[in-house]
Amino acid sequence: MTQTATTSLETVEALYEAFARGDVGTVLGVIAEDAEWFEAEGNPWYLGHPFVGPQQIVDGVFARIGDEYEDFRLDIHRFLVDGDTVAALGRYSATSHRATGRPLDAQFVHVWDVRDGTMVRFQQYTDTRQWADVMGAGAS
């Protein structure tokens, strides 16, 4: 079990490193064809169902981050590992949302399920009210 947990943690750490470099190709190489990506309920991008597979994840999440936010970053503070499941605790930040000019600074927990070095499921937990306010979708 320790070996699997270590492998899963290394996979998730490598994903965050690739995100930080803007290396989408490496990220996509680790996402299973049928991977499920769940945005937090209440997030303005939440559809009521997961994005499935690399292309939906790119179109529904990654491309939107790049299109909508200036200097978007993820700062990881801690990892928790349980077998093939890895939780990452940290903060999102961006200097501004392009449409509103508002900065983003929101905490998150990401829960990753990894099988044999491949990401099969992702669940986001974050302050969805702050996201909505930054994006101009919430009450001011």
Rank of each mutant, 00 (worst) to 15 (best):
F79T: 00
D71G: 13
G101K: 04
D59P: 01
E33V: 06
Y46C: 06
V86Y: 04
M119F: 06
N43I: 02
R129L: 15
W45P: 05
D82M: 01
V27K: 06
E17G: 04
V114I: 15
E68H: 04
A18I: 07
F79Y: 15
V58E: 01
S8Q: 07
G25Y: 02
E70A: 11
F72N: 02
T26R: 12
Q55F: 01
F72V: 02
A87L: 14
A63C: 00
V109I: 08
F72P: 01
R115E: 13
A94T: 12
G53R: 00
V120R: 11
F19P: 02
I57F: 03
A40K: 09
H77P: 02
T100V: 10
F38Q: 08
A18D: 09
D67I: 03
A32T: 03
D67M: 06
V111K: 06
E39Q: 12
D133G: 08
E13I: 12
Y92P: 12
V120I: 15
P103N: 09
V109Y: 00
L104A: 12
F51M: 03
Q124S: 13
F51P: 00
S93R: 14
R21M: 04
V61I: 10
Y16S: 08
G29R: 09
G66N: 11
G48P: 05
H49N: 00
W37D: 09
D116W: 04
F72S: 02
D67E: 09
R102A: 13
E68T: 06
D75W: 06
E68A: 05
V27P: 07
D127A: 12
Y16A: 05
D23I: 13
E36M: 02
R78Q: 11
E17L: 07
G25E: 10
P54T: 08
G53Y: 00
T118A: 15
E36T: 03
S96K: 10
E17M: 05
D71P: 12
L47I: 01
T128P: 07
Q124L: 14
D82G: 09
L15C: 12
A40E: 10
L9K: 14
Y69V: 00
V86M: 07
Y125A: 15
T95Y: 08
A63S: 01
V30Q: 11
G117R: 11
Q56R: 01
I57P: 00
G25I: 03
L47N: 02
G66L: 11
I31Y: 04
L104W: 14
L104G: 03
I31T: 07
